[in-house]
Every structure is written in structure tokens, then in C-alpha cells.
């Protein structure tokens, strides 16, 4: 790749790209992210749609806020259970509204830490019973 083809104006995300310089050597340049410059809006739109859909599913008899954040953060049940240090079977139950509503605050805190949110963020979506 020639140096001129690698230059992208995107101060929001800088990356290092290895390119062919004018003297024929291959070396690094600091440039902008092509994807962020051209497709960030599209990414945000898709995320917004996903969040709206997941929020509509968070209701009694359906999904819990834990399910919403797990999907949003692109985690599998196995990965989430390792991060909150619980058996997969338990985490699976907590994805359902009815089990979530009987959780203790201490357990919610463990989930909140993984999702980098606060417990009230989860409670606003669905209070405990």
C-alpha cells in the first residue's frame, strides 16, 4: 500500500499503518481509522436498533436486564459466567426476568462491574420484586 492511499483524516481514532514510503521503504505512519471515519454512524444506528429491541424484550415473563447487557456487550453465557464467577446454569436463569427479580443486590453488583454500569442502571430497566 502506498503512503498516500493510507492517509485518512479521522482524529477520533488514530491507528498505525505500515505503508510503502516514497523512497521505497516500508514503514509506519500515524493515520485515521478508515472504518470510524466512514462507517461510525452506521455502527451507532445498528447498536441503537439492537438496544431498542432488547429493551422491548425486558419485561416480566420475558428477558432480564442481564440478558440485554450480555447481548449488547457481545458476551456468551460461558464468558459471562466466568467473569461473574457463577455456574453457567445460574447465569442462564438470571437472563430470565422471573429469576432476575429475586436476585440479591450483591450479585447484581458483580454483573454491573462486568458491564461497567451501576446497579441502579439495571434496576431502572427492571426493579427487583
Amino acid at each position: 500500500m502506498k503512503e498516500k492511499d493510507g492517509i485518512v483524516d479521522c482524529p477520533e481514532q488514530q491507528v498505525i499503518l505500515y505503508v510503502e514510503k516514497e523512497d521505497g521503504t516500508y514503514g509506519p505512519i500515524q493515520t485515521g481509522s478508515y472504518l470510524t471515519k466512514n462507517f461510525l454512524e452506521d455502527y451507532e444506528l445498528k447498536r441503537k436498533h439492537l438496544e431498542e429491541f432488547l429493551k422491548s424484550e425486558v419485561q416480566p415473563g420475558k428477558s432480564s436486564p442481564i440478558y440485554l447487557y450480555m447481548v449488547l456487550e457481545d458476551l456468551t453465557i460461558s464468558e459471562l459466567s466466568a467473569r461473574v464467577n457463577l455456574r453457567q446454569g445460574k447465569v442462564k436463569k438470571h437472563l430470565e426476568a422471573k429469576h432476575y427479580q429475586s436476585l440479591k443486590i450483591e450479585l447484581l453488583e458483580r454483573y454491573a462491574e462486568v458491564f461497567d454500569i451501576t446497579v441502579p442502571d439495571m434496576l431502572r430497566l427492571m426493579p427487583l420484586s
Binding site: 500500500m1 481514532q13 491507528v15 498505525i16 499503518l17 505500515y18 505503508v19 478508515y34 472504518l35 470510524t36
Partner: peptide, 15 residues
Amino acid sequence: EDQGTGGAGFRFMYA
């Protein structure tokens, strides 16, 4: 490209 490869999945840096 963006997840720290130097472009083209490290191929440019390997060159």
C-alpha cells in the same frame, strides 16, 4: 485493520 494490526491483518508489518 483497526484492531491493532498495522493494516491488512499484520501483512504490511510483516513486509
